[in-house]
Simulated assay, not measured.
Amino acid sequence: MDSENSGSIAFHKQMGFQEIGRLPEIGRKFERWLSLVLMHRLIGRTP
């Protein structure tokens, strides 16, 4: 997900996801650089 999408990051954290990494300026869209946030949740765990 885009690192600037704080609403999505907050939602995923509420669902039990953890941020495990960031990839800065990994791609371009509409003439701007995007960074990627990697999130992870183990299957079977409840939030």
Score class of each variant (00 low, 15 high):
residue 27 G to P: 01
residue 12 H to G: 02
residue 46 T to G: 12
residue 4 E to L: 14
residue 7 G to D: 06
residue 38 L to S: 05
residue 35 S to G: 05
residue 12 H to C: 02
residue 24 P to A: 15
residue 34 L to P: 03
residue 5 N to K: 02
residue 29 K to D: 01
residue 30 F to R: 00
residue 14 Q to C: 13
residue 2 D to T: 00
residue 8 S to N: 05
residue 9 I to M: 07
residue 47 P to W: 06
residue 29 K to R: 07
residue 43 I to P: 00
residue 39 M to Y: 03
residue 19 E to H: 03
residue 23 L to I: 05
residue 35 S to M: 09
residue 19 E to L: 12
residue 42 L to R: 10
residue 4 E to I: 09
residue 6 S to R: 10
residue 43 I to F: 00
residue 5 N to Y: 02
residue 45 R to Q: 13
residue 33 W to S: 03
residue 11 F to T: 10
residue 42 L to V: 14
residue 45 R to H: 09
residue 46 T to E: 13
residue 26 I to Y: 15
residue 7 G to Y: 05
residue 39 M to N: 01
residue 16 G to K: 01
residue 20 I to C: 10
residue 35 S to P: 06
residue 18 Q to F: 07
residue 31 E to R: 04
residue 35 S to I: 06
residue 40 H to P: 00
residue 23 L to N: 05
residue 45 R to T: 14
residue 10 A to S: 13
residue 39 M to H: 03
residue 47 P to G: 12
residue 10 A to R: 15
residue 11 F to C: 14
residue 35 S to W: 12
residue 36 L to H: 11
residue 32 R to W: 01
residue 38 L to Y: 08
residue 20 I to D: 08
residue 22 R to L: 11
residue 14 Q to E: 14
residue 12 H to F: 05
residue 27 G to C: 08
residue 1 M to S: 10
residue 41 R to P: 03
residue 26 I to P: 00
residue 16 G to V: 02
